[in-house]
Design a protein around this nucleic acid. Structure first.
Lengths: 210, 210
DNA sequence: TGAAAATCTGACGGCGAGTCAGAAAGGTCT
DNA sequence: AGACCTTTCTGACTCGCCGTCAGATTTTCA
């Protein structure tokens, strides 16, 4: 009943319209990636699908609304990451498990980095809708991370000067931001493997105290 | 001879023009802070100083050029941070020294976050000038961080699976990004002190292995 | 003070945002 | 098939900002 999709004026749309809307979203994602959010034009998106700006406004009140939709779709792909963050990383396999999480995070990031960057920018600039989407996405992972830190503190491996929630945020921050730097670091000689292993080591340390 | 300041057409400008240019830069910073980069209009900047758009274009070819200038100015304020990152953080005082660095970083971030966010966005979207400015700024701090990590690895306190450069990048990433999250984390109960102490603990751990 | 240099701005052409009335396409019923 | 209705699309328009330039205004200094 409620996976109905709506046009900008609120009416439920049919299958032809749904296809058009999908094409617009894909074109938005593509151009966001190619040109960046600052040069994203509704005219270009429309032209890209061989249509006119008026068509775009049939489905979205503005570009933000389309990006927000893409951000929500990206959140779906973040959910599986949680499965890689079950407590109990031990010396024997902890580093390897951290590595697997980093690998998965890299794949996720690669697939959505343009949209995630846009989402974060809008969230940081105070847009409440983007804030909500980012929070929802981050909490998925952060709840799991927080539990691991709490366990580490309980077993005295980690100092109690760590706030679990903030530590979880720091770990997410590290992952996101380091991957943003990636192209530039590559230019300075740090390759993908070095980033991967360093990130895994840092995560393992911050989360377990090993 | 070469701290001359130039207008957009390349001529050297006098003191009246310099003052106008300064006012434009300040207004740009103010509006960047208030409205965010996506809604920044040359018209608004000009209006803010009681002038017309044409005046803006006397001094800058476009808004990016003004933001770039502000980013360069922000870099100056980052330099003093390096002094807080001399190797030799020991158990006795290391955590406290990490805390002092975090404090200084917070002040720096508060003063410039709008500009730094804009700089990072442009850099990540591939703008070479913003990339260069960001790299220059980050390297100041990262060279110092890298040296500390290298020392930690040499003394076997840190595992050699850490790449010093990447670790340095991760530390910068954590600082930058965590402060971005700050307003949102506050809403979820993590106060400024918790962030400060957690960040200090994580830095101390990542840099020294303690 | 008057002429030259420096600085500022009104006014304009161009382009993208967003709207709306009506055209086109698709579906239904007889 | 054809008349009619609903859904979807778009041409054409207004508005506001961008970036330019010629000329107005202010400052300088001989």
């Amino acid at each position: 009943m409620s996976d109905d999709v709506f046009a900008a004026d609120g009416r439920v749309i049919g299958s032809r319209a749904l296809a058009t809307r999908r094409k617009l979203l894909d074109a938005t994602a593509k151009l966001l990636q190619e040109q960046g959010i600052l040069d994203l034009r509704v005219v270009d998106i429309s032209r890209d699908i061989g249509s006119s700006p008026a068509t775009f406004y049939q489905y979205f009140n503005d570009v933000d609304e389309a990006i927000l939709e893409l951000a929500k779709e990206a959140t779906e792909d973040e959910k599986p990451l949680v499965a890689l963050l079950q407590p109990g990383w031990k010396a024997a396999d902890g580093l390897e498990r951290a590595g697997r999480f980093v690998d998965a995070y890299m794949v996720y990031w690669d697939a959505h980095h343009a949209v995630l960057r846009a989402r974060n920018l809008k969230a940081e600039e105070g847009n409440r809708y983007f804030r909500a989407v980012r929070t929802e996405a981050n909490l998925l992972v952060m709840d799991a991370l927080q539990a691991m830190v709490a366990e580490g503190i309980a077993t005295k491996r980690l100092p109690d000067s760590l706030d679990p929630f903030t530590t979880a945020a720091a770990v997410v921050a590290m992952c996101e931001r380091l991957l943003s730097f990636q192209p530039e670091m590559a230019r300075r000689g740090a390759n993908r493997d070095a980033i991967r292993n360093t990130l895994a080591t840092l995560l393992y340390g911050a989360l377990t105290g090993h």
